[in-house]
Design a protein around this nucleic acid. Structure first.
Lengths: 330, 330
DNA sequence: ACCCTCTGTGTAACCGGTTACATGACGCCC
DNA sequence: GGGCGTCATGTAACCGGTTACACAGAGGGT
């Protein structure tokens, strides 16, 4: 037995579909009698409106597409939490799509959103602006998070990676560290690249010697990086990882090598995932949930309006903990 | 300018919508010439098919609805990761909806899924079976995770909370602990209730004295519970928290009170979130991602088929770390 | 009695796809 | 040349809602 439709309800209530629709949507130009007959028929049939059909005729889905890369645990949950909080306040649902894989696959993922959602939030730190702009369904309000910008006219939210990296360099300098190492994220990832470039630059300005290695934003790669450094007997007294995950891996490797943190080596990360607080990791705090929330707020504001406003920059903040100072805050 | 539709493409290619549709869907009964004309028109117009309209006529959305309660960071990301992995392997998207709030709100959230998704995964540990069954759109394949079951004929996946709690009791007994405390999750939450009941029972069987306090699954409540115990001078040498979050809070409170873990008090949690490994917390491992994955696999299997198969029980596993044994594994 | 307004309701077109069925062209075989 | 099968294509109905517009009947004013 197929599900009941509005026509079934109309038949049962001996009314037209128009009247049923009016009742269901709370219009006031309906008699009390009709209202009751409809409610009864709905109850008897167990009728639930078909949201897809509704969307089609209203040209409005009440859903927002969220396209994210493969994110690591806490970062993912935080950003989605922020979006969801704001979305459900406005009666929107989130349609999730992961962006693992090739640009082709990415383009497909974006296209398949057309007609399903009223707007799109895209986070694709590994794609360049052209591919992305070409892949976005034209005419669908979209907002980009941390994308290689390229001056395209899309609305975007960016994280001030440079400011974060500079803050770490400042901190290392203040601690009197001289031989600094940076474990960068994967090349081609905009966050990784921006952080690395800004950090390198900041070290140069402060006359700190800076060595750069590459990881992939995963914990294990931070560990490997430190093992390599120790093997090659490269001397260093401070380490800045491109994200907290790698910093945590680095911490483990340092400790198993018998090096004291922060005495021998000061360690800092980036993101401030909840784990960082528990491990006492100095890091650059990104208010992740807030980032997601802002993306949604701006997207909703632009839906309906022709308003594809410009950029928005989120400033992060250094949080000093025990991996760089013995008694921080004391 | 409105977006292009299939009719615009047809007009431009001087073909009928039927032919265009056939080309777009890769049917083989189309001439090479038509194929080219369509591709060209598509390119020129920047046409992207309207997924909503497609769903309506196919009665198939390629989306799965996921309704979750307010979950804590890592648990949320892990379970969604598991689902997403499986979903994108089969070309499905996930439509997310959070279930904060009253049963009324919950019912609305579930109903609004009809016509948007091909199936539903519901996790609602705080709702009872009747409310839930009544709120589910009839005729929509659904699978419940860890719901108060009540023998309704729905497909479900359950976590064997009792087995986990018993394993902890066994472990405490083997360690020679006698005065045990359990910090339970919020009453009414099925996981919290099952764990507490099973643990109490297991302690009774093993003749361990067991005191039960209530928290809310958040870190702070674990902390508070321990503070209360210490204030009231209640003696205890082992603590089992209803989840890892609370165990972590408890750890902090114990340490600030100057109690040694595990010497003075052994501590165990439940879930095995990534943080647990980093903090050396003994816990009951739930393969969270796998749980999500299985839910999706079973749901997809039942779509199309009339197959509303029965329950599935996931057995957790005790992971011993340094909050209960000085050198675990040694 | 007439016209006008107002209210409640129904008919049918529309949203943008898919597809059953009809059609017309072509080639083949007897 | 007639009958038939095959193939590419077009026409129009359909999915399940919304809503512009038409309309009937009641009530009120003159």
């Amino acid at each position: 037995m197929a599900e009941a439709t509005i026509r079934d309800v109309a038949r049962r209530a001996q009314l037209s579909v128009a009247t049923v629709s009016r009742v269901l949507n709370g219009f006031d130009n309906v008699s009390e009698q009709a209202r009751e007959r409809v409610s009864e028929a709905v109850r008897e049939l167990g009728y639930v409106p078909h949201a897809g059909a509704r969307s089609l005729s209203l040209a409005r889905t009440n859903a927002i597409g969220v396209v994210l890369p493969d994110l690591h645990g806490e970062f993912f949950s935080e950003i989605v939490r922020g979006m969801d909080r704001e979305a459900s306040r406005h009666g929107y649902l989130l349609l999730l799509s992961n962006l693992h894989g090739s640009p082709d696959h990415a383009a497909f993922a974006l296209r398949t959103m057309r007609g399903r959602v009223d707007g799109l939030i895209v986070m694709a730190p590994h794609l360049n602006a052209e591919d992305l702009s070409a892949a976005l369904p034209p005419g669908l309000p979209s907002i980009l998070i941390n994308t290689r910008d390229g001056g395209c006219s899309r609305a975007a939210i960016h994280l001030d990676n440079a400011a974060g990296a500079q803050a770490v360099a400042d901190h290392f300098e203040a601690l009197g560290r001289k031989r600094v190492v940076h474990v960068a994220g994967p090349a081609g990832n905009i966050d990784a690249d921006e952080r690395a470039a800004a950090f390198r630059e900041a070290c140069a300005v402060r006359r700190l010697h800076c060595e750069v290695l590459h990881g992939d934003f995963e914990e294990a790669s931070g560990q490997r990086a430190v093992e390599q450094l120790i093997e090659s007997a490269h001397p260093f007294d401070a380490l800045f990882a491109g994200n907290d995950n790698m910093a945590i891996g680095a911490l483990q490797a340092l400790r198993s090598a018998g090096l004291a943190v922060p005495e021998d080596v000061a360690v800092a990360g980036f993101d401030d995932i909840p784990l960082a607080r528990h491990l006492g990791l100095t890091t650059v705090r990104v208010r992740i949930a807030e980032l997601g929330e802002r993306a949604l707020v701006r997207l909703l504001a632009s839906i309906g309006r022709e308003d594809l406003a410009g950029d928005e920059l989120h400033a992060p903040e250094l949080v000093v903990r025990s991996t760089t100072e013995r008694n921080p805050g004391a």
